[in-house]
């Protein structure tokens, strides 16, 4: 049994018949073909699958695609402008070496966007609190904190 859903991802409309059990992350990756968002744990603990749904950062491995029916989703592929100009958060990560293997990065970028959307000039402590639900095994987080700080500065 399938259900029909329509979702806007990065401004583009998608409509599909999906199984009710299909996870949003699998819909984004396998059905919509946007493989930028990653699966690190399937239990909402690592945050590699973080995307924005209706303006809120969520872990898309613990949301069903059918729950996103009618929603507007932004993934890492939607961060840069159509012209290719990078989002200031992407620039921050690049300039401050906020990534190594890059696997957690899409989720880190999306959650960083939320941190700055909610608080344009966060303290180090506030940044760390905002990042706390996303795991990175490479960086020790320091350069990610610096990346968010740089992005915040660029937004002022």
């Amino acid at each position: 049994m399938t259900q029909s859903i329509s979702v806007t991802i990065n401004g583009k409309p998608y409509a599909h018949e999906v199984e009710p059990r299909l996870l949003l992350i699998h819909y984004i990756r396998e059905v919509a073909g946007l493989t930028g968002s990653h699966i690190g744990c399937e239990t909402s603990l690592c945050g590699a699958c973080t995307v924005e749904v209706n303006g809120r950062a969520i872990k898309s491995c613990t949301m069903f695609a059918v729950q996103a029916d009618g929603a507007s989703v932004i993934t890492v592929e939607g961060l840069a402008e159509a012209s290719g100009k990078l989002h200031r958060i992407q620039e921050g990560f690049w300039n401050e070496h906020g990534l190594q293997c890059g696997f957690c990065t899409p989720g880190m970028l999306m959650v960083s966007k939320q941190i700055l959307d909610r608080n344009p000039s966060p303290t180090e402590e506030e940044i760390r609190e905002g990042l706390d639900g996303n795991l990175c095994r490479c960086t020790g987080y320091q350069h990610i904190v610096k990346a968010v700080q740089a992005a915040a500065k660029a937004g002022v």
Binding site: R29, L34, T35, Q90, F93, H97
Partner: peptide, 16 residues
Amino acid sequence: RREDPRMITGTATYVD
């Protein structure tokens, strides 16, 4: 890093 543009735009190709 020169490897970063593909990783920060979600266009790097991991095995999955």
